[in-house]
Write a protein that binds this DNA or RNA. Structure first.
Lengths: 336, 336
DNA sequence: TTGAAAGCGCTAACAC
DNA sequence: GTGTTAGCGCTTTCAA
């Protein structure tokens, strides 16, 4: 099945030089006579030679490749974050491969193998099932950077959005519009959700609004949970909320649709603010007010830090938090 | 930076055997005395040895890895198709890496390098910029299967949905609901769009409805184009359409939102049928009637065929077309 | 049942 | 400037 592949030996023979010279030409070494270079390049072209990466990587100390490790491909911001990573990587002549763990711890270990086996020079993780202990260990031995989802106190660098400030800004905005009964659709696991909840709490506190546990619901980031929890919020509460802050756009769309289906209009009866600013927010009816994550920048920055680590320089800072930006659309309006 | 890695040599030394024996244990060779095997395994555990894949792959004829090659990560069906591929791959103890060309021909060549360099055993493509000639050549030398987007007459196997039949069923359904002025939002490039347009034409013909070029608009699969083209359809036509068939859900959501913003209600004033059955269709207001692609099966089948090729067996069939299934939701209703 | 040794394709230290 | 050669970590003959 597989074709006999042209090797560096074949090129050397064809060009009448040694393999070392061919290797020098391939790696743009300056100490090659112009005539020789041309001769070798001619042979390369004629034989359609392409270097075997396995051989090269085995010998070299670097593969010029990094891995993006994620738990699921179902990740609305992936495309843009990836673009940031990819464009930064390209500047260093690095290429990227994407691997999904599908949430399996086993699979994740297998993929981290690729790092330990020098199959890639470094890894950017988007959420991991590693324990703090494991992550600390891994970070000591290999270049690794966390993006978006992160664990602190492990010494592992991370690049994320300022979740607390973002949530606080979102809720403060709702307060400014005149809302006092502000609900939240959150998640009861993960650092991201926790920080956003803290931001929510802070904003309420600053506005002198007392905290009401009935107004907080916990979902799983899915559309369905947004729908279900909004129904609960609107049906359970004797004094129903006039606004909802959702910790992602997916649930916020569910919230908007559920509210309308119950006969409430958005934003007049219920104002909604999401988080992320994905296409979903734009495609929603009405388009959602949301906190925009600097997706491209997050990816770009993660790659920059990873390159520093790969090159053996400790990055100046181990923790980067970029600000989220309020994007006002039609799911919010000044309260009458 | 990088940790000194434990090699097979270290294990051999520690266990007091040769590297050959360690290799045999690693590969479950039967000709190893039980005592020796235990001794080696003990050493492996103690040293936390993990085989270097680069060395192994260089020596072996296979990597037990395949690549999924796509032009963009922004692919609403990716998650489910991938699941199909991944679960099939797992059965063969294969792992998968995903690589995006970002639409760059250059990048694509670079990635196909990984195949030619035995970095992966095979490739599943989701759309490629290769010419028919190049694809034919590649398919002759390496295991490769096309999924969803494909080129015929190259000898390269493909697994896709029956686009013509799917489109025909969608439009026939609209006809049955009583519609005669049925528009289409399509795309003016790519085989997929072409086949769906043919299906549309066939359905009209079967219903004795004459073809009206004004009712066909060409977008680029994006939400924005769905919005824009729907406006055109509703504003330009003196006799406006009562139904629209969109060749993907993304544009169909744009269609629904644009129609409502112009004061038309969906489905009463304008019925809409999408294609794909992604989350977008479910999250739309109203939820969209659409043609469901058998996403998981498409991925699974592609991987099965690829494995056959990797194992040197010519697949029984080079072309698999799975049926799309009509899913009726609230963007269509019997016409009054 | 085990070990010695060749060799996968490449790079780089060293010699000329 | 160029060639010779060792060796990256592994698998797999071949011989013992």
């Amino acid at each position: 099945m597989r074709k006999k592949v042209v090797t560096i030996q074949d090129v050397a023979q064809s060009a009448g030089v040694s393999v070392a010279t061919v290797s020098r030409v391939l790696n743009n070494s300056p100490r090659v006579k112009e005539r020789t270079r041309v001769k070798v390049q001619e042979a390369i072209r004629q034989l359609k030679y392409q270097p075997n990466l396995l051989g090269r990587d085995l010998r070299r100390d670097r593969t010029k490749r990094i891995m993006i490790l994620l738990s699921s491909l179902d990740y609305p911001m992936l495309k843009e974050v990836y673009k940031g990573v990819e464009e930064s990587a390209r500047n260093y002549e690095y290429s990227t491969i994407i691997c999904s763990t599908s949430g399996s711890k086993n699979k994740e270990e297998q993929l981290l193998q690729l790092l330990k086996n020098r199959f890639v020079d470094g890894v950017i993780t988007f959420g991991t099932t590693l324990t703090a202990q494991e992550l600390r260990q891994l970070n000591r031995d290999y270049p690794i950077v966390q993006c978006l989802e992160w664990m602190g106190n492990t010494g592992t660098p991370y690049v994320s959005v300022d979740n607390e400030k973002g949530a606080r800004d979102a809720v403060t905005y709702l307060v400014k519009l005149g809302h006092r009964r502000i609900a939240m659709i959150s998640r009861n696991e993960g650092q991201t959700a926790l920080l956003r909840e803290q931001g929510y709490g802070l904003a309420l506190q600053e506005a002198g609004i007392s905290y009401d546990a009935n107004l907080i619901k916990y979902g799983d980031f899915s559309y369905e949970s947004g729908v279900r929890l909004t129904k609960e919020l609107l049906e359970e509460n004797t004094s129903r909320p006039t606004a909802v802050f959702c910790i992602n756009d997916t649930m916020a769309v569910g919230c908007a649709n559920a509210a309308r289906n119950l006969g409430y209009s958005v934003p007049e009866d219920l104002a909604i603010v999401g988080f992320d600013d994905t296409m979903e927010a734009l495609m929603s009816a009405p388009p959602l007010t949301t906190m925009r994550q600097p997706k491209y920048e997050l990816g770009h920055m993660a790659m920059e830090i990873l390159m520093r680590k790969i090159n053996g320089k400790e990055p100046e800072t181990n923790a980067v938090l970029l600000p989220a930006q309020l994007v006002i659309r039609n799911s919010t309006v000044v309260k009458r």
